[in-house]
Simulated assay, not measured.
Amino acid sequence: MRSFVSERREPGELFGPRFSLFADMLAVGLAAAVASLPLVTAPTALAAACAVLRRAIREDRPVTLGEYVAELRAHGLLRCLLAGVTAFAALALVVLDLALAGAGLPGARPVSWALTALAAAGLVLALRAAGDPEAARGWRPALRRAVTRSVADPAGCVLVAAAVGLCAVFLWMLPLLAPLLPGPLAFAITAVELRIEPSSDEG
């Protein structure tokens, strides 16, 4: 399996490039958490994190705060707000449907399971769209490409779902990790997408 990061270590460098990438991942996660504070900006904040981590891996260079801010701005305020409002509207609709399904209505259990599966699939598709390198140009095309990639790579969907599950477990075990979790999640999404893309030396 091809490594995303080269093994070379510069003279006098205390830690190798893998540790530098780990530190960048945590820093990007913290920046994404701050950018997500208005809540409706969360999808764009995660997409920007995926974009800068993708470039860091592809080009084997460190991430800068200015690069992350520039990526956020590339999405545009309107697209950022529309993405956030759409995501939270979909979430509210699913929660409402689950509440109605759990109100003792006939067939509530299978409906609840179906809604949960639908919500999980929608979340995975949204996360894969956030990992699209062209997400800043429009969320609709990114979602269409995410659907195409998901059909061609169902294993990737399982990996993204597993990453979400692990983040949820970490958050449950230690809530203080919350500001850092967007970094590992963005890294996992990016790694899933890069594993099916040709490397630069193969292209």
Rank of each mutant, 00 (worst) to 15 (best):
P133W: 00
A48Q: 03
A56M: 06
L26F: 12
D60P: 04
V63Y: 02
A45L: 07
A114Q: 10
V40G: 00
A136G: 10
G107W: 14
A83L: 09
L65V: 15
V63G: 05
A49H: 02
A117C: 11
V124I: 09
L26W: 05
L115P: 06
V28H: 03
V69F: 01
L123W: 04
A114K: 10
V63D: 04
R109Y: 10
E71D: 10
L81D: 06
A74S: 15
G102H: 07
A35G: 06
A70R: 14
V34Q: 07
V95G: 09
V95Y: 02
G66A: 08
R109I: 08
P110D: 05
P133C: 09
R109G: 10
G104H: 11
A51F: 00
A45D: 00
A129R: 06
G84L: 06
T41C: 00
G131E: 03
G107R: 10
F22H: 07
D24R: 02
I57N: 03
E134D: 15
V40N: 00
R58D: 15
A101M: 11
V40W: 01
A108Y: 09
E71K: 05
R109M: 14
L39V: 15
G107E: 09
A103V: 13
L53R: 03
V94D: 08
V52L: 06
L46K: 01
V28Q: 04
T64C: 04
L30T: 12
T41Q: 05
G76I: 13
A70N: 08
A126Q: 02
P110T: 07
S36I: 14
P62T: 12
A126V: 14
P38L: 12
L98T: 11
F22C: 08
G131A: 01
L82F: 10
E71A: 15
A48P: 04
M25N: 00
D132G: 07
A70W: 02
L91A: 15
L53F: 04
A101E: 06
A135T: 13
V111I: 12
A27Q: 06
A74Q: 12
P62C: 09
L91H: 11
A47Y: 04
A33Y: 07
A129D: 01
Y68P: 07
G107F: 12
E134H: 15
C80M: 10
V63L: 08
L46S: 03
A32D: 02
L93H: 08
A56K: 01
A70K: 08
A32C: 05
T116W: 03
P133D: 09
P38D: 09
S112I: 11
P133M: 06
L125P: 03
G76W: 03
D60G: 03
P62D: 02
A56T: 04
I57L: 15
R79V: 11
V28I: 08
D97W: 13
L39T: 11
P133V: 14
G104Y: 12
A47N: 06
A103E: 13
G104C: 13
V52D: 01
L125A: 09
L77G: 08
A135W: 06
L78A: 13
G84H: 04
L98W: 09
A121N: 10
L118I: 09
L26C: 12
L127K: 01
L78P: 00
R54P: 00
L78S: 07
D24T: 03
L96Q: 14
A49I: 01
A27H: 06
P62G: 07
A126C: 11
S112L: 11
A89Q: 09
Y68R: 02
P43N: 02
